[in-house]
């Protein structure tokens, strides 16, 4: 049942996506689209509209995307064991052995 449901879901998404691709010329907001396509070369001197959007029109998005990467790495640094933890483990083991003797 779950398999059938997920297969149907994937097929529905597929049809939706291809349907939008077939009819996208009408549906996009014409104002923004036209402005960017017409003016991005003079505005940003980029040859590629994607680069001009990422680095100029929508710069806040790019900034916070970089911030998300930093947050992920800070989390990793905080929660994963480090070299110093391993050394502490070793020294505790040695202490226990010495106290045994």
């Amino acid at each position: 049942m779950r398999v059938v449901a997920s297969v149907l879901f994937v097929l529905a998404v597929f049809l939706l996506v291809t349907g939008i691709t077939a009819s996208n010329r009408v549906e996009l907001d014409p104002l923004m689209y036209d402005y960017i396509v017409r003016n991005f070369e003079e505005d940003t001197h980029a040859k590629n509209a994607v680069a001009s959007i990422l680095l100029n029109y929508r710069m806040y998005d790019t900034m916070f995307e970089a911030l998300i990467l930093l947050a992920a790495i800070i989390g990793m640094n905080q929660f994963l064991p480090r070299e110093s933890d391993m050394r502490r483990h070793e020294s505790r083991k040695q202490q226990m052995e010495e106290s045994d003797e």
Partner: peptide, 16 residues
């Protein structure tokens, strides 16, 4: 303008 784009690309590339 294009200097700024290149600068940002280098910064983001090294950071990522």
């Amino acid at each position: 303008r294009s200097t700024y784009l290149t600068l940002m690309d280098i910064l983001i590339g090294v950071q990522v």
